[in-house]
Design a binder for these strands. Structure first.
Ligand SMILES: [Mn+2]
Ligand SMILES: [Mn+2]
Ligand SMILES: [Mn+2]
Ligand SMILES: [Mn+2]
Lengths: 227, 227
DNA sequence: AATTAAAATTAGACACGTCTAAAAATATAT
DNA sequence: ATATATTTTTAGACGTGTCTAATTTTAATT
């Protein structure tokens, strides 16, 4: 088996690092600090430094000592491909296998590393070319285009704003289960009725019922205000 | 993170070794030689010895130096679980994602290592609890029961035998494509019309058409003779 | 500006899974 | 039974990815 020049098969670990760097650096590919990556990946800074060198070697990131890493074009394309796979698999698990939205992330963390272009294209078609995953996050296109939709944190909109709940910022299982418990779901209409200055808690109307939510909740819910 | 006594998460490599040992040792868990495993896994005998020790440590195989390894109950259960996953995923790829039966093995080699009991149960249900994979191989139950159905190699049945083609022994892509090319598929009715002693080739009727197949083909096709 | 604190890197180690080359055990042939 | 061939194991190495402890660089304080 001959491996030519830039035949690059990513290891699982490399893919995970790229994904973390992408999420931390945003769409503008800002430089990301060693510690930030270590935190997010629950690893040690020294491990991050090692990987930074390796990814830099491969042309996937720009790395300057003590200055952090930033994704190259190639690096961000790879990251987007992994994110695409992650979100398509999550969609599959929820739409086809009837998983709850709080159960799919861990499994998708594994499935996202399956290597087969054809598989993911077929899956995409099978799912009807979904644009968002179960948590409202956009699914990058095959080419790596990510459509960003207009949305704001519920905590950031003024009182009296009405809109549709379109996403969660925190998609950890406990938060998602909180939403289920309180009958809150993506697609629900939300209206901000009152905001408490002291603790940032909100009185909102959702599904025509009034409830009070803490600031902690409000900073993790995305809303698309009506018009 | 604490790992108690028999908390056993298999590595991908361990799973692959167990699977190879299972296939070589058959349902009776015969002892398997180091070289046989190395051949099948395209690795070196020294690597096999190393792994034999490790699997033995974990109670998955019985290993005595120079005598080969044989699966323990626990080892064969694990192997069967991996095989179950492999075959369910292959079925998914063919039935739901419209893959050809010669394309699925490589992808299933990856998917079989995804760890989630729930995922595989749901997938099983989603597929309608299939009993065979696309190559006619039985899918072990959740408990590891493998139904063996009555079938014989086409090369081994006497002239004039008629039956249904129920499986392929060799499920390599080239062989499967040979079948496609010649419009042969599982479920087809086959009748052995004539057998050439010299080279073992057969004249058969399949789908009401007569064709001649080499011994090489006949030793890779399973038939269930009509009663 | 000098000191202290925080962040990042390096040095050295280890587990895993693999390999090559050499040695030992077993099987085969004379 | 002895010699030869084959199989299997051991010894030692290497790449990957991780860690701890020590060092260096950069940032923040006084
Ligand atoms: Mn996720
Ligand atoms: Mn998601
Ligand atoms: Mn297969
Ligand atoms: Mn198969």
């Amino acid at each position: 088996m001959y491996f030519y020049g830039n035949f690059s098969t990513m290891t699982r670990s490399e893919e995970n690092y790229l994904k973390a760097i992408f999420h931390l650096g945003g769409l503008e590919h800002k430089a990301v600090s060693t510690n930030a990556i270590a935190d997010r990946m629950e690893t040690k800074p020294s491990s991050v430094t090692d990987m930074a060198k390796k990814l830099s070697e491969k042309g996937l990131v720009a790395y300057t000592k003590y200055k952090g890493v930033s994704l190259s074009k190639k690096g961000s394309q790879t990251a987007l491909s992994v994110i695409r796979k992650h979100r398509l698999w999550e969609t599959f698990l929820v739409d086809k296998l009837d998983f709850m939205w709080d159960e799919v992330h861990e499994i998708a963390e594994q499935l996202e590393h399956i290597q087969s272009e054809k598989l993911i294209d077929r899956l995409d078609a099978f799912l009807g070319f979904p644009k968002q995953d179960p948590h409202g996050d956009p699914i990058p296109s095959k080419k790596g285009e990510i459509q960003k939709e207009y949305k704001k944190l519920l905590a950031d909109v003024p009182v009296a704003t009405e809109g549709i709940c379109v996403g969660v910022k925190n998609s950890s299982a406990p938060f998602l289960r909180y939403m289920d418990k309180n009958s809150m779901a993506l697609g629900d209409t939300i209206e901000v009725l009152e905001k408490e200055e002291f603790d940032g808690s909100l009185q909102i109307k959702i599904r025509n019922k009034q409830i009070r939510i803490s600031n902690d909740i409000a900073t993790n819910l995305f809303i698309r205000p009506n018009e």
